[in-house]
Design a protein around this nucleic acid. Sequence first.
DNA 1: CTGTATCCTATTTGATACTG
DNA 2: CAGTATCAAATAGGATACAG
Lengths: 119, 119
Amino acid sequence: MSKVKETSVNYENKQNLGSECTEIYAVNLINGQWTLAICCHLANGKLRFGELRKRIPNITERMLTLQLRKMEANKLVKRTVYAEVPPRVEYELTKSGLQLNPILKQLEEWGEKHRKTID
Amino acid sequence: MSKVKETSVNYENKQNLGSECTEIYAVNLINGQWTLAICCHLANGKLRFGELRKRIPNITERMLTLQLRKMEANKLVKRTVYAEVPPRVEYELTKSGLQLNPILKQLEEWGEKHRKTID
DNA sequence: CTGTATCCTATTTGATACTG
DNA sequence: CAGTATCAAATAGGATACAG
């Protein structure tokens, strides 16, 4: 994560590929190391920051924050802040995020089959 | 690309996520920057190394080689070497690679819709 | 023609400590 | 509780030259 320098060859290449080929654009939205893990856990409803952190093993606060911010920017999750003490923030999938689920199911089935063919 | 040090926390995390959650495993197979571009071009039949290079703008020989090797290791593409002079090498999708195509189509449609909702 | 090798930069991820 | 800040490590990607 961290900031992306918007003037690198790498960045340009990604932009080009993403704008020509929509499936590449789509994959770029979900290819963070933790993005899908978060999707999984949010698939069944909203969760608070701390709940996500507990459910996802090994993730650091930092990475969880960065991933959630990225997904928020990509409109895959919605972030709701409650002005309370102690603070409470809830995350949930957007409509687009939810529509991704059936596709991920298929990807899961494919992965299962593929893993077997590899042995 | 470059080599992956098989003793880093990062590597372990990827392994863990991939083995628990098959969709993460599946995405890891296709999340190279050029992987999907190669898939696209091979979807319609075999291509030679040089043909791929010409069709994929901006890719360097190095990255094309690395990606193809990775995809070969993952059994997404098959590599056929003809013992000729000059040398000829053809790449084609494996059965698993082909089965990925309908899923990518759906991902493409989702990406299209999603891109609009973002504005 | 089909790559490899080398060196370097960009980006991502992690560990840890700290804040409102 | 829900983060930020900072520093360091690891991985991905690029430029270029060269080899079988």
